[in-house]
């Protein structure tokens, strides 16, 4: 058994999976040069779903979620995000990126800007929000991730956990409908992992659609409504967390779980 992500009871009142499709991926394939990194990916994500993607290193988890906001280009199949198809049309890409927030393993905050400026930059320049309003929104989200007092510091002056929470706040300032997380806690010390997970749990409790690559199986158990297991560029198994952990079907999944949960 893995540790729990949080000791408290999760509030599921707003965690509703609607019928509305947020992301639709059909027969998607991707190659790096001649290396076939994603193979026949089919995935439908409904609005309000919390999906955890797990799998061994190099299985293509990052590549998959980076295709969703076009940080990587796929070569075959369709990806439809919020009704907009991802093609090389820049207008569509911009539209999707405005609706999809992303947090990275190494935070990728802008070191030359203060925390507040990090959070207001995209709303001001992409959404054309007036500065004052953007700053109010930013403070609102910084309060939410519990670091409003750091607003005028620079990222280099914050701890890793604080930086990752700023990164989450920065994405939220764009008011995204979908959030992507690529191993948001794997560069952090154990005590900081908890504060970032807490932030993510609160986000889930508010009904955010989330796709999360993570090795935090406690988070998957408590928060996710679906766990996807990937290996060798393919989706090998997906199920509800309870079933996934207690009753894995595929041999690869069993092997992976035994390694990661240390049975």
């Amino acid at each position: 058994m893995s540790e729990l992500a949080t000791a408290r009871e999760i509030d599921r009142s707003k965690m509703k999976v609607s019928d509305e499709v947020a992301i639709q991926i059909n027969n998607m394939n991707k190659w790096y040069g001649t290396f076939h990194v994603l193979r026949d990916i089919n995935l439908t994500v409904n609005q309000g779903e919390r999906i955890v993607i797990a799998g061994p290193s190099g299985s293509g988890k990052s590549t998959l979620i980076r295709c969703i906001n076009r940080l990587e280009e796929h070569q075959q199949g369709d990806i439809i995000v919020d009704g907009t198809e991802l093609t090389s049309d820049l207008k569509n890409i911009d539209k999707i990126r405005r609706e999809v927030g992303m947090c990275f393993q190494h935070f990728n905050l802008f070191p030359h800007l203060t925390i507040l400026e990090n959070c207001t930059l995209a709303p001001i320049w992409v959404r054309k929000t007036p500065r004052k309003e953007a700053e109010e929104t930013a403070m609102h989200f910084l309060e939410k991730v519990k670091i409003p007092e750091q607003a005028n510091k620079y990222p280099g002056q914050l701890s890793g956990g604080q930086q990752q929470r700023v990164a989450i706040a920065r994405s939220l300032c764009m008011k995204p409908r979908i959030m992507l997380f690529d191993e948001p806690t794997s560069a952090l010390d154990p005590e900081m992992i908890k504060e970032v997970l807490d932030t993510m749990i609160e986000l889930a409790e508010e009904g955010m659609t989330m796709l999360c690559v993570t090795h935090e199986m406690g988070f998957a158990r408590q928060v996710a409504n679906r766990v996807i297991f990937m290996d060798a560029g393919q989706i090998v198994e997906q199920n509800e967390p309870e079933e996934f952990f207690n009753n894995p079907k595929s041999e690869r999944t069993k092997l992976f779980l035994s390694q990661i949960l240390g049975h």
């Binding site: 906001n69 076009r70 940080l71 820049l90 911009d94 990126r97 405005r98 999809v100 927030g101 992303m102 990275f104 190494h106 990728n108 905050l109 802008f110 930059l121 995209a122 320049w125 992409v126 920065r170 994405s171 764009m174």
Partner: peptide
């Protein structure tokens, strides 16, 4: 500059 800076800018929708 780390590649992450470009990616973060892209992900936020900056052209």
């Amino acid at each position: 500059l780390p590649k992450g800076q470009y990616e973060a800018a892209d992900a936020l929708g900056l052209d």
